[in-house]
């Protein structure tokens, strides 16, 4: 349907848009479940179909396959060699990938890293460079170099527990490239322009790299988008990803329903999941929460803390059997006392 025709169907006041959206979204996705399991056996590293939709709707912090699509600036886009140079700046080289072995001495709070000579030569790194990078990132440490070994200790006394997590963080630190980007590949589109696709997402880092088109950076990690471009971009990304996933499975759902879901998820300024830990779990009404999941928990808590329910929403009114405040149910009738007497007299 064209945009012009859709304009004619502006929503009527009191329409239960949420319930309509839930129906419109839910029915085709049950169809999708059936189809998804029939096509099992097709190997793919990218999460699609229902698992992807669940991932988006649950707003998972760690998603299975974060992907960034990086467009290049005009002078880089047509040149394969230049695109390859940009690509080389993306792939991460972790400290732990260069190690032969490591020993943690938690009593004296030191760590001994033994680097492999071949691996260092392969990635064109020196111990001096690594120790400089580590000191710049973790300010409270000192390094000591002996041959192929690097001894790390703290300038001041440090608790065992926090030191231990810091040691792990140090080994997971990206000496080269962008933290979190496991792989990057150069690809070519139909117009002959080169662009980069990465496995792993780090938008803040990608914006710093020369040659990256800052206007057309795309990631499918909603929290990365939220951090770098803000809540509005995150809303658009969630809606577009949901639409894209549905389209890939040949299921069509109107964008306004998906947009409404994305709006609800980003209503408060941060991303909330749609389940019992997010939108549904934060409803004001006790009955509305109890009618969704964990019924007993909500009723017990409500009675212990003396919660009040003004019965303004939809599900709580359905639950207690009252007319819901939606559509024609919104209309209230009133009659003046004098007029009522007239009616009685006519009888």
């Amino acid at each position: 349907m064209s945009v012009k025709n859709e304009k004619k169907f502006n929503v009527v006041y009191g329409e239960a848009v949420g319930a309509v959206a839930a129906h419109s979204f839910g029915e085709p996705s049950t169809q999708m479940v059936l189809r998804t399991f029939h096509s099992a056996g097709i190997a793919s590293s990218v999460v699609t179909g229902l698992p992807r939709i669940l991932e988006l709707v649950d707003a998972r912090k760690k998603q299975q396959s974060p992907i960034m699509t990086i467009r290049l600036e005009k002078s880089y886009a047509k040149n394969y060699e230049k695109a390859k140079q940009v690509k080389a700046q993306f792939e991460e080289v972790l400290v732990k990938s260069l190690l032969e072995s490591f020993t943690e001495d938690l009593k004296n709070v030191t760590m001994l890293l033994e680097f492999s000579k071949e691996k260092l030569a392969q990635s064109d790194l020196t111990l001096k460079f690594i120790s400089g990078k580590l000191q710049a990132k973790f300010e409270s440490i000192e390094t000591e170099q002996e041959g192929n070994k690097l001894k790390i200790k703290y300038k001041s006394k440090k608790e065992m527990k926090s030191a231990r997590t810091m040691f792990v963080n140090m080994r997971n630190f990206a000496i080269k490239g962008l933290q979190g980007i496991k792989k990057a590949t150069v690809q070519q589109d139909d117009d002959g322009e080169f662009y980069i696709v990465t496995s792993g997402s780090n938008m803040a880092g990608a914006l710093e790299v020369d040659g990256v088109d800052k206007e057309h950076l795309y990631s499918n990690d909603m929290f990365d988008v939220l951090k770098v471009y803000g809540i509005e971009a995150a809303r658009n990304m969630i809606a577009n990803e949901l639409k894209k996933t549905m389209d890939e499975e040949n299921v069509s759902v109107g964008f306004r329903h998906i947009g409404l879901l994305a709006d609800a998820m980003t209503y408060g300024g941060s991303i909330k999941s749609a389940g019992r830990h997010g939108i549904a779990g934060n409803k004001a009404s006790v009955f509305a929460r109890a009618s969704y999941e964990e019924t007993v928990k909500h009723f017990v808590n409500a009675s212990v803390f003396g919660e009040r329910d003004p019965l303004k929403g939809v599900s709580e009114n359905i639950l207690i059997g009252k007319q819901i405040n939606v559509g024609t149910g919104r209309i209230k009738l009133a009659i003046k006392k004098e007029d009522l007497k007239k009616v009685d007299a006519e009888k």
Binding site: G230, I231, E232, Y267
Partner: peptide, 10 residues
Amino acid sequence: PKILQSDPQV
């Protein structure tokens, strides 16, 4: 709908 003060666009 809300937007945080710390939002990059704000």
